[in-house]
């Protein structure tokens, strides 16, 4: 039940991000949309390791069943990468605003010509 709901949530978040990416024209909104889409993907990664009966993955003779640590590591990595890419995108938006005086992506092709 909870798994199905989380899948639905991930799909919904992904669609929200994709909608923003397609509709928004502001560079900062676009960065946000990408970030939202990445969040949805990370949610899917975390779901890979969901196990309500599992305990923390620490080597311990008493623990028989533990959650798979690999998706957690993958999720952390993906979060770090997403944060770095978002930071880069925002930094580029700042440079574009300073040098070209706009944040609207549909004005860029005209300015680049």
């Amino acid at each position: 039940m909870i798994v199905a709901a989380t899948y639905a949530a991930a799909a919904a978040v992904m669609c929200i991000g994709a909608y923003g990416l397609l509709v928004r024209r502001n560079l900062i909104h676009i960065c946000m949309s990408i970030s939202i889409m990445e969040t949805a993907a990370i949610l899917l990664v975390v779901l890979l390791a969901y196990d309500p009966a599992g305990s923390a993955p620490i080597l311990d003779p008493e623990v028989a069943r533990y959650v798979d640590p690999l998706p957690h590591a993958l999720a952390l990595t993906a979060i770090v990468i997403a944060a770095a890419v978002t930071a880069l995108g925002l930094a580029l938006a700042v440079i574009i605003h300073r040098r070209l005086g706009t944040l609207r992506i549909d004005e860029l092709p005209r300015l680049l010509r």
């Binding site: 990416l21 676009i30 993907a41 993958l74 580029l92």
Partner: peptide, 26 residues
């Protein structure tokens, strides 16, 4: 500004590329 705009353009494509790769990995 021009190079930043091109870099942003690439960033858009590349984040989608990374997203699809992550989905494939999942």
């Amino acid at each position: 500004g021009v190079s930043a705009a091109h870099a942003f353009h690439y960033l858009l494509y590349a984040s989608l590329s990374g997203l699809f790769l992550l989905l494939a990995i999942v």
